[in-house]
Amino acid sequence: MKSISLYIDNGSWLCRMHPFTKLAYIAAAISVPLLAGRLWLFAVFIALSLAVLASGHLLKRVVPLVAFSFTILITIFLIHGLFNQQNRDILFSIGPLHFYREGLLYALHIGCNVLNMLLSFAILVLSTKPSELVEELEKRGFSRRMGYIIISVFQIVPQMMGTMNTITDAQRSRGMETEGSLATRAKAFLPLISPVVMSSLINTRERAVALEVRGFAAKQKKTYLADRTPRRGDKPITIVLLALIVLAVIWRIVQCL
């Protein structure tokens, strides 16, 4: 079954790191540059994220993620470079199109922010098993119902995709064409999507029964199969990251005074 999670256990140190440490990194990477408001800090964190990803052998797998948000970044550069209200100085022109300094700088800010967020999240997403993250959260008091919802999504989506294949076969068997002109494909839309939507809703009845009979509503404190104690490096790294955030907040307050 194909997973929608991007996690693959490649045995690197990143995969073994405690998920909370990675969460702390995301918090620091996003908040510090925003609080300090310096463009070069974005660059620092982007570089740091890239270095971390590289040492965890994940650099190659981050490419599609960046490519995914590339179209929206280009739109932002185009629209603001050309039309931003603050535009004064023309930086360069391509034919009749004039790109302005102010707009491009603004777009650069947004772009750096997006890229920074993307890369810091990528560290967590690519190296952490979702169920591990949820389990650790549950152990710290996170609602187990919410925990179930999150993990269940990772099971249900690939399952629905699998059902889609069966449904396609079933409807083709009844003489429905799925290939051809746009009109043919559009006509196929309802017979394909409707069974998967309806059956996934109808199946919830039995799934709920299955949870009930396995003590889902029990009040006892839940226990876990795996025992994950934080590694040696986890604690100091988390402390440093949190300290950075605090420093940035102080810096911001001092600036405002």
């Binding site: 119902r145 179930y148 919802i149 269940s152 999504v153 099971q155 249900i156 989506v157 399952q159 629905m160 939507v197 996934s200 809703l201 199946n203 919830t204 799934r207 709920a208 949870l211 889902f216």
Partner: peptide
């Protein structure tokens, strides 16, 4: 609770 993941899948 089971309804929610199904909806997210949809």
């Amino acid at each position: 609770i089971v309804l929610i993941p199904a909806c997210i899948g949809i």
